[in-house]
Design a protein around this nucleic acid. Structure first.
Lengths: 194, 194, 194, 194
DNA sequence: GATGAATGAGGGTTCATTCAT
DNA sequence: AATGAATGAACCCTCATTCAT
């Protein structure tokens, strides 16, 4: 029950340090010191510094994707499904705010193979999300006079931007904020002509 | 007519390389080789690699701020002013897409004093923009049931996100996209109750 | 038996090269090559080139201070104690002639914090020595018509100057020279009026 | 009458900066900025940074040598001549305290040819001084039981050491100090047996 | 599983000096 | 006489990774 503590401790220390100082400005030495382990131990669990960064993404990506799958699986009116999906991804992004900070800043620091893997995983999420929008457009709920890429970007941008303004220590409740952001998005894309 | 060629050549090479490979993964050696100058020459015009990064931001920040000042100075109904400001900042952000890519990824790599300066400059823009929203709210045009911080983030996030999806070589026209993004934003924040 | 060979080898090479060429004219590369180690290995044991210089001083300062403490602790007539202390510091300074050469030339090359530390350590030695002179004056042994600072400088100057003229390969025996220098000093400061 | 102002301004700035920061830590750029001239102008008057250092020594060496020549030329009892010479060299060394600081620290930074020249010039002074001691010994005034090299070092060391303790802003008068140092020296070397 | 000394390639930066103007 | 942009070689230092123990 303590076997994988090393991996966890290292991961947590890495997230914190990467978020505070950036990936490139954080040395492996700093990470293992903060985690209270030695370099050798760390390299026993992670192939490289790069691998550590990937592990951070992996955890968040898996979680959000499984949530989305589940929400869609539950079925229901597309508007409800979309709203639930949006609120969920904002909420989990707030829960993983440090991971998101690292993610959006340092994705490009990954080596090529892992970079590709991240892109692939994110595209899966993106495409599944896009199909919801598409269904809504087909039902005449959402604007079709704007490229779907713009509509989607309009929402995903908010996820990215959270770490630039949201303060977990501040007054705003994460669920409320998630609903507000979702509301602004859904209002913006609603079809109003007719 | 050749006086500052070194500085310009270096800046352009740096923007390109930073956008392609990231700031940390680009060596000063690579920059000067791409620019066709010597390291010594570069350090005659820039204090440090850090300074080079700052110069890239500086140019974009100055331009966008002076545009905003001018748009506000021209006056007019708040909705028109805000719309013009939004379209402008999206358009210039597309014109400086590489700079934006670098900016949003690598701002945290700046040394502390320059980081502060960037924050200060961005806050000036932010606050001026926020006053427009506030005026619109006072006139009853925009929702007041959502924190202003959320409304503003909803727009600025789109600026940030441009470099993640917009392809200058793609089919979308920059002005059209700017208008679409602005429209989604303004529709989203419009007051509809009553 | 080989544990700290790297640190020792580096230190010895550094003392030799600094004495021959000066601190500023000796590159870290030269030092590690002379010591037969790699740069990385050196930086595993020393924080910086500066640290290496400090380590050289440290060793000499510690030794001379502990000798002085011991000589004073043994007690006895002040004239005997002072004479023993003088002879000892000249002798050890001859034994560490290269270190002294480096010390007196390059102390000002240390970074501020280490410079302060050296000053502090030397002042400890100086003050302990000064108290011996003071005791001697109180007993009427030594001149009081000359500021104590001048009396003390008159001796310490000889320590400094050793590396400018003493040749370890020359005919002069170190103990004999130490006694001669001490004798000149003590004769010079003796009270003769009365 | 302003033609050589450049050379003078540069020299003074250099002495001050070398004394404050050390020769190696002072850049040519700092010197010309402090002197209010340009690099090109400086290199018009000095061959190199090295040359600048030599010029500082040259001025002091020439002055002290000419003083010694004159004092000896005036003739008189050897004790009086020696005393006058000692007082004079201490006094001028205090007047040129910054130059002395630089001299004793950085002589080894000179390139070989200039280093040789400095050594030659100093030996001239040394030898002339040594002959005075020798005459005194021949007359039975000074101890002959100690190598002459030790006797001479005993005095020159004080000159070297001045910059380590003498404070021009302090209470001690330079002439008085010169007499005190001379007195300690002459008392120390006086023949007392018989 | 775990250690941490050692590697070795590369990084950013400095600076005395030159030379076209 | 004077400028200052440009050179180019060297410098100190960092750090992800390896491997003998």
């Amino acid at each position: 029950m303590k076997a994988t503590n090393v991996a966890d401790d290292v991961t947590h220390a890495a997230v914190r340090l990467f978020a505070e100082q950036g990936y490139a400005n954080t040395s492996v030495q700093q990470i293992v010191e903060a985690a209270g382990v030695t370099k050798g131990a760390m390299y026993h669990y992670f192939e490289s510094k790069d691998d550590l960064l990937f592990a951070i993404y992996e955890r968040m990506l898996s979680l959000q994707k499984s949530h989305l799958d589940e929400i869609i699986a539950r079925g229901g009116p597309v508007e409800d499904v979309l709203r639930t999906a949006c609120v969920d991804v904002v909420e989990t992004s707030i829960e993983f705010l440090a991971e998101g900070t690292v993610f959006f800043r340092s994705q490009h620091m990954l080596t090529e193979p892992r970079q590709q893997e991240v892109v692939r995983r994110r595209r899966e999420y993106h495409d599944e999300f896009a199909r919801l929008i598409q269904r809504g457009q087909a039902e005449g709920l959402y604007r079709a006079d704007v490229p779907r890429a713009v509509l989607i970007a309009n929402f995903f941008s908010d996820i990215h931007y959270l770490s630039h303004w949201y303060d977990p220590a501040g007054p705003e409740d994460k669920t409320l904020v998630a609903e507000q952001i979702t509301d602004l998005f859904l209002t913006g894309i609603r079809r109003t002509d007719a």
